[in-house]
Design a protein around this nucleic acid. Structure first.
Length: 595
DNA sequence: CTGGAAAGCGCC
DNA sequence: AAAGGGCGCTTTCCAG
């Protein structure tokens, strides 16, 4: 190993000369705490935030051009630092990294860059050709981790020491190997070059932009919820005849099923503990009012702990906003995930939950604009299956759940009730998720025989859908993997398993992944087009959130009309499917009240 | 005291 | 026996 320090300009010039022939790999990370006793602290100490100087945050960096060699450097204020920065922003110097988005954000924070790649402030890291993390993900998205350490272990059986020079070296070598593999998979390099890699700077900008939260409103809600929780919990103790922790499923089960002698759920309790999950308690609510109280308590306490009390803690002291992290390699299907906080699961279903959504607000002079795809997965099912009934219905703009109700329950469209429609909706969703009679029966509260009849009738009417599912399963059995429309792959090794249970899971996954994964590709493509359009037209609107089939923007009032048009057009026309993609757009002061 | 499993539940 | 796809967060509980 020749791991050394970069400490002169000639050294750097020699490196860059070599980089012309080979590729240059970078490892970039925040400096490790040198004092050694503050590293386990999760949250930064408050007084320090005020002394932080955005222009001066150092960053550790290491550069590798040849295997087993790397030069490390602390990016600070020196003349050499400025020379290194010039290299970093030089688009014509191709680079290999692991986790491009983290590098971008780290470098942006260091220089105090806010917008990350507008004409006003250029990207702090350009020319990235290879992102080892994205390569690893595209080659096998089912691994739970694509950290450099994990990838090095999996691919090279190499245990990393933590030295940054070693990280740069390994990034260089992994970059070469994994790029070759990605190029060897039909369509995969295309997904990489046209979707996942270009999306990284877009995601970095969304994270950096953040969202504004009405913390005062949340504080008021917290007080109210505290009272309500307390009251519910006292009522429950009264009904139970003893005090216990309602939050403990074990203690609750003890009280419900042993002390009060309520009927135990038929098939629940897969382990030793009897389930007290929502559907169990809903059945119980008929017998005893305590079950309803517990359900109410659960809802209140969930909303309070997960959202109302947590979100304010994640407001960034510098920006006054909440900055989630989008994980571009976090799912097996190609979707994004969101952490710290997860802004992809903000409540909407219940009135009380929606209250939390109303605390997501726009900056003064701005509004929030939300645009979501209507039933995108079912539309993709129509496209893939080419089912005449489904395709024609979507082309006509018919109500698809009503159609399914009419077809499956044999009721004339005129006579369909909300009840019918609701059940049909469950059937349609069931198809996308890979339905079983048991699952549908549980969902609809009917017996398995009837559920089975519904499913059979569905496939009788939607012949193309049945054929599509058979086609996907056949191909998966041969290839042991599935593919989205754009070429993203997911291994399905259990598809030929002798274990019927595992095989069943594999089959449902195989059917769902092309739909969910293609929808993920579609919205990513829309994000790219919209982002490009925003900078081309020099608009001041910016994208802030993505929630799988929805995009949220913060929009200056003057740009609302423009943005309504721009966003919905680009989302709808992202790809020429056989059926139209419909996009619903709403605008408002907060994330709940949208028109 | 910390880490992890299990249960439960918020979203698409 | 298990029995609808994909996530992340909070709480409880227990082992080390």
């Amino acid at each position: 190993m020749e791991y050394g320090e970069l400490n002169s300009e000639p050294q750097l010039e020699a490196l860059l000369k070599l980089a012309g022939k080979h590729q240059l790999a970078l490892a970039i990370c925040a400096p490790v705490a040198s004092t050694g006793n503050e590293e386990k602290d999760d949250e930064p100490e408050l007084p320090l935030l005020n002394v932080r100087q955005p222009g001066r945050d150092p960053v550790e960096l290491s550069i590798a051009v040849e295997e087993n060699k790397a030069l490390s450097f602390r990016l600070g204020d020196s003349a050499l630092s400025r020379r290194v920065e010039k290299m970093l922003v030089d688009e014509s110097i191709p680079k290999s990294v692991h986790d491009y988005k983290s590098a971008l954000r780290l470098l942006a924070r260091r220089t105090g860059t806010r917008t990350l790649g507008n004409e006003s402030s250029p990207s702090p890291l350009a020319g990235v050709r290879d992102d080892v993390m994205l390569f690893s993900y595209l080659l096998n998205p089912t691994y739970s981790s694509h950290s450099l350490a994990e990838v090095a272990l999996r691919r090279f059986n190499l245990q990393l020491s933590g030295m940054i020079a070693e990280a740069a070296d390994v990034t260089l070598r992994l970059g070469r190997v994994l790029r070759t593999e990605v190029e060897g998979e039909i369509g995969l390099i295309n997904v990489y070059e046209t979707i996942d890699l270009p999306l990284v700077p877009v995601l970095a900008r969304m994270e950096a932009a953040g969202v504004k939260i009405d913390t005062a409103a949340l504080a008021r809600m917290s007080v109210q919820l505290e009272k309500q929780c307390d009251a519910r919990s006292k009522e429950i103790h009264g009904l139970a005849g003893e005090e216990f922790n309602v939050n403990s499923p074990r203690q609750l089960g003890e009280v419900l099923f042993n002390k009060l002698g309520l009927p135990k759920p038929v098939k629940y309790g897969k382990g030793k503990t009897i389930s007290t999950a929502v559907d169990v308690l809903e059945d119980l609510a008929v017998e005893h009012e305590i079950a309803r109280k517990v359900l109410d308590f659960r809802q209140l306490s969930k909303l309070k702990s997960t959202y109302v009390d947590s979100l304010p803690n994640l407001v960034d002291a510098e920006t006054g906003r909440v900055h989630t992290t989008f994980n571009p390699v976090g799912t097996a299907t190609g979707r994004l995930s969101s952490t710290n906080p997860n802004l992809q699961n903000i409540p909407i279903r219940t009135e009380l939950g929606r209250e939390i959504r109303s605390a997501f607000i726009a900056e003064a002079g701005n509004v929030l604009l939300s645009a979501d795809y209507s039933q995108i997965e079912l539309r993709l099912l129509a496209h893939f299956s080419d089912d005449p009934l489904l395709v024609e219905a979507y082309r006509r703009g018919d109500d698809i759940h009503q159609l399914t109700a009419s077809e499956v329950f044999g009721v004339p469209p005129m006579l369909i009730t909300a009840e019918h429609r609701g059940r049909a909706k469950a059937v349609n969703f069931g198809i996308v998720y890979g339905i079983s009679p048991f699952g549908l029966a549980a969902q609809l509260g009917i017996d398995q025989k009837e559920a089975k009849k519904y499913i059979e009738t569905y496939f009788d009417r939607y012949r193309g859908v049945r054929a599509f599912i058979e086609r996907v399963l056949d191909e998966t059995r041969r290839e042991q993997r599935v593919r989205t429309l754009f070429g993203r792959i997911r291994p399905i090794p259990d598809i030929n398993s002798k274990n019927a249970n595992m095989r069943g899971f594999a089959e449902r996954t195989a059917v769902n992944t092309p739909l969910q994964g293609t929808a993920a590709d579609v919205i990513k493509l829309a994000m790219l087009k919209i982002d490009a359009e925003l900078s081309r037209r020099k608009l001041r609107s910016h994208m802030t959130l993505q929630v799988h089939d929805e995009l949220v923007f913060e929009v200056p009032e003057k740009e609302v009309d423009t943005m309504r048009e721009l966003v919905s057009e680009h989302m709808q026309n992202v790809y020429p499917f056989k059926v139209p993609l419909v996009v619903d757009v709403g605008v408002g002061q907060n994330w709940r009240d949208l028109d």
